[in-house]
Nucleic acid binder design. Structure first.
Length: 485
RNA sequence: CGGGGUAUAGCGUAGUUUGGUCAUCGCGCCUGGUUUGGGACCAGGAGAUCGUAGGUUCAAAUCCUGCUACCCCGACCA
């Protein structure tokens, strides 16, 4: 790696993505090409979360990419939100005009179609047809898809104009049940992030001005990156009856009365991959926790021409053994690269374990394995037990998480003095717990002076009165400030 | 969307101030051979309308204008 984390975090981040072949710039502003290795990370995320959503009774659906303007504006009128950057489809034909391709003006659509920035509106315009009685509830749906938000400043994975995500949309007969669903999902996200991706997160509630405008309460999980900035990793919205009222979706309850439906929505996106990179990686490249690593073990043969076949045979045996035990293994037997070249390659790609096998290993009946997270070399018996490998993968997973957790805890700082606050934000960032008077204005001023924003109100909440760090006015509890992505 | 910077072969670059044998070098790629325990070596070869569209000029990578993309900083961000 040419760029070091400490010297230029942003360049380091880009370099790591390009060199590890996760993604590339597409040449279209804000759009990226997710390459096979990067996409396989997304597939790992998808597979795991999808399994969990099925277990919790959610079903997958697919709604259209394009939303008629009238449907979207219905939502927007009621949520006074109108500044959203969206892509809009206005025509349906192109034609040749003097060897140039132009939009056929005759093909102008009667009604413009908006490429979904999110699907609440189109889904709620349909829910009406599906829900009449309390017996139709709850509706627990999830959609894997893409969305477009016309962002002004984009960054690979973290904020792209088009992104891949999962959006859950549920409908419930009671407020209690909807809130439970919202929190249940928040906990699923938390668990997923920490145990699968090894990224420690804090749960919180978004302050009013920062929440999804269509929601009553927006819950989030936020993680601290290595540069001291925070990243929102997922959101879960309690929507109240906002959408059912806007789209007039009622159900008949047990007593024969009509009621508006309570609902939730929640999502995570390809942004998580950005969080994964920024949480764990080092100046040598990516570091992947074993659970999410598309390849957990790579086997590198070290041979001379005359002994290649014997080494190849043993390497294949190890490969077969590991594959049979469901360890995701890759045997790199390409001859055009030297072992040293491959060592670097898989370091950059963050493969958790590397096994070297050469004539020495076969003679001594020992194997040399190298951990990516600690760069340690460990000697194991040539005919190792699968439990040894499983335990090692488990240790690596734990170690990566503990390292991130330790860092996060170190930069969770309670402050009551604005001067210290400014210094801390400037020096090393972090999650800063401080009192806030609850006004938008104060939040704005703090942001202007420090670049830090209110990320969330800690949840579960620990109310403890105090004085706002900026204005000195009364505050109900501490909130978390941070610079963020 | 504003301010600053950058754009030369797949990648990284020299050359741009001062227009004229200037398209340089490294990596990678192809062929052959020797190699293979931390990014191997030798020999030969292919590959660039200098981001793009115009303009100035006898002559443009080089000067001027528009456009596009990327990077950094802000604004924006369900």
């Amino acid at each position: 790696m040419e760029n070091k984390r400490k010297e230029n975090y942003s360049k380091w981040y880009n370099e790591i993505i390009l060199k590890s072949e996760l993604a590339e710039f597409s040449g279209i502003r804000g759009f990226m090409i997710i390459k096979p290795y990067g996409y396989s990370l997304w597939e790992m995320i998808k597979k795991e979360l999808d399994k969990i959503f099925r277990q919790t009774g959610h079903k997958n659906i697919y709604f259209p990419l394009l939303i008629p303007k009238s449907i979207l504006s219905k939502e927007k009128e009621h949520t006074d939100l109108f500044s959203e950057g969206c892509a809009i489809v206005t025509h349906s034909k192109i034609k040749k005009d003097q060897e140039k391709i132009i939009i056929d003006p005759k093909s102008k659509l009667k009604e413009e179609l908006i490429i979904r920035p999110t699907s609440e509106s189109i889904i709620w315009s349909i829910y009406k047809r599906w829900i009449q009685s309390y017996r139709d509830l709850p509706v627990l749906l999830n959609q894997w898809g893409n969305a477009i938000r016309w962002e002004m400043r984009t960054k690979l994975f973290l904020r792209t104009t088009e992104f891949l995500w999962q959006e859950g949309h549920t409908a419930h007969s009671t407020k209690k049940e909807a809130i439970e669903e919202t929190l249940n999902i928040l906990n699923i996200y938390t668990d997923f992030s920490q145990n699968f991706m090894a990224i420690p997160v804090l749960q919180g509630i978004k302050p009013h001005m920062d929440k999804f405008h269509g929601s009553k309460t927006t819950y989030c999980i936020e993680a601290l990156m290595q540069d001291g900035k925070s990243l929102q990793m997922g959101t879960s919205h309690f929507l109240g009856q906002n959408f059912s009222k806007v789209f007039n979706v009622q159900f008949t309850n047990m007593n024969g009365y009509k009621e508006y439906i309570w609902s939730t929505s929640w999502g995570i996106s390809t942004r998580l991959i950005g969080g994964l990179i920024m949480s764990h990686s080092d100046d040598r490249g990516l570091i992947l926790p074993p659970k999410i690593a598309p390849i957990q073990i790579v086997i590198i043969p070290i041979y001379k021409k005359k002994n290649f076949s014997i080494i190849d045979e043993h390497a294949n045996n190890i490969l077969n053994f590991l594959e049979k035990k469901n360890i995701r293994t890759f045997y790199d037997n390409r001859t055009q690269f030297t072992p040293g070249w491959k060592f670097h390659e898989y370091e950059i790609k963050g493969i958790p374990i590397r096994i070297n096998i050469g004539i020495n290993e076969i003679k001594n009946e020992k194997l040399e394995i190298i951990r990516r997270d600690t760069l340690e070399t460990i000697c194991i018996p040539f005919h190792f037990s699968i439990n040894l490998i499983k335990k090692l993968l488990c240790d690596i997973q734990k170690n990566i998480y503990q390292k991130a957790l330790h860092r996060t805890k170190k930069y969770m700082i309670e402050l009551d003095n604005y001067h210290d606050f400014k210094n801390q934000i400037n020096d090393s960032g972090g999650f800063i717990f401080a009192h806030w008077d609850g006004t938008k204005n104060t939040g704005k001023k703090i942001q202007e002076e420090t670049e830090a924003t209110i990320r969330f109100i800690p949840f579960p909440s620990k109310e403890k009165e105090g004085k706002c760090i900026f204005s000195g006015k009364k505050s109900k509890q501490k909130v978390v400030f941070s610079k963020s992505y």
